[in-house]
Design a binder for these strands. Sequence first.
DNA 1: CGAGGTGTTGAAAGTGCTCAAATGGCGTGG
DNA 2: CCACGCCATTTGAGCACTTTCAACACCTCG
Lengths: 238, 238
Amino acid sequence: MSKQAMIHALKNNTFLQSVSMSCLDDMCKTAQSLHVHKGHVFFLREDPAEAFYVIVRGWVKLFRESLDGNQAILDVLTDGHSFGIPALFHENTFPYSSEAVEDVIAIRIPLHALKKSMEGNIQTAHSLMQYMAKEHNNKEKELEHRTLQNASQRIGCFLLKLLHNTHDDGPQDILLPYDKALVSSRLGMKPETFSRALAKLKAETDIQVKGSTITVSSVQKLAAYCCTACSHTFPCKP
Amino acid sequence: MSKQAMIHALKNNTFLQSVSMSCLDDMCKTAQSLHVHKGHVFFLREDPAEAFYVIVRGWVKLFRESLDGNQAILDVLTDGHSFGIPALFHENTFPYSSEAVEDVIAIRIPLHALKKSMEGNIQTAHSLMQYMAKEHNNKEKELEHRTLQNASQRIGCFLLKLLHNTHDDGPQDILLPYDKALVSSRLGMKPETFSRALAKLKAETDIQVKGSTITVSSVQKLAAYCCTACSHTFPCKP
DNA sequence: CGAGGTGTTGAAAGTGCTCAAATGGCGTGG
DNA sequence: CCACGCCATTTGAGCACTTTCAACACCTCG
């Protein structure tokens, strides 16, 4: 991937999109693009951190493992999203591990380049803050969902976020972006629970499930089922 | 509370402590101190936000309520901590409600003062980022705990964070900082569950419970019980 | 002493988890 | 084109943990 292509990718749909071209140009001087194959890790928790990553294509999961061998999925990210940035504020070690869920193309940008850009350029600093605030907000929502919603409702909420059109109430198809086992751990449940909870959701809200394709017959009905257990009224955009 | 006292309070143990006196002085020009009595709210979720708060003394809970009337506690804060800041990045409305758990003395600082200070002063911006990164990190830990730890382990982990001395293995007393019902919802469980889970923790790790005072006979033992279900090895400082 | 708040306990139901086995789709090699 | 094996997913049965609802104990304060 050429340097120009990298800059273009950063301008499109990443947290750096408001940063000026010249700043991105600077930042990309030490950046590189890379392919990571399915199942391979970018870095592990506590690794010394030298760079953060921006996903150009593919899916990446962020996770931690407990001493007794369980895994908690923190997030699953795709095009335009970045990861590894919190290392900046964490003694330069990564606070989580990251792994390609499928083949990934990413841009690797040294943290010191980001730091330098931040110091010289208010816009970079502002973008980073915006990014962190959004992350923080997402985590708080997540925590609320774990507290107030049951398994079926969390699945429904996940589906609602995948909708393209939140206004039309007519039937819409949703394609699960990654396999059900990963969706389930992303939502803090086991695959078996996911399967049963999805069946329950099907019974409650008239969705149809065929493999990874889910057809929502009434968005209203689905939202009514999920969002009553949440502080946000549908659609919960920001 | 005099302006000098406010500045002094901000210099001591808040996220603004690295900010220069002159900046704090500026910021405090439009700040005011206030008392809020137990049970009274500072603001509600979705209120238009004009200021954030720094706690000088007392305890404040941050929470959200679902449509069907349940409450999720996001955090419970005390001296030196602040709340309301995320409104800066949230269309100037508060993303959560806040209520005094006991009588509180706080400093109310207009958000525009913070914003202005941030723009004129790198150190303020840096402090704010540091603060947000830490918050973000805390939320991720919280989420991990909900995923991987059971009720007893979460209580144990909560107690470990209250320890003054993490090195000595000898007996130490801990005083619960607020009532058990609030601790339980802070940890995402019901009061009854808390009571039973604490009894189980007592059986498993030789702690003694007498009202709000808990005596840990062996920190090692408690840590061994809780931290095996977590990715962080004890003591988990940062 | 009585009232109200706070915490505990019991019994039963609900929810999600574990382990094991069955199902079904899909790509490969024959 | 079909059989095979692999993998993801589903299903079943039993269990563990948490919640619910109700009752009770305890403490403090008036």
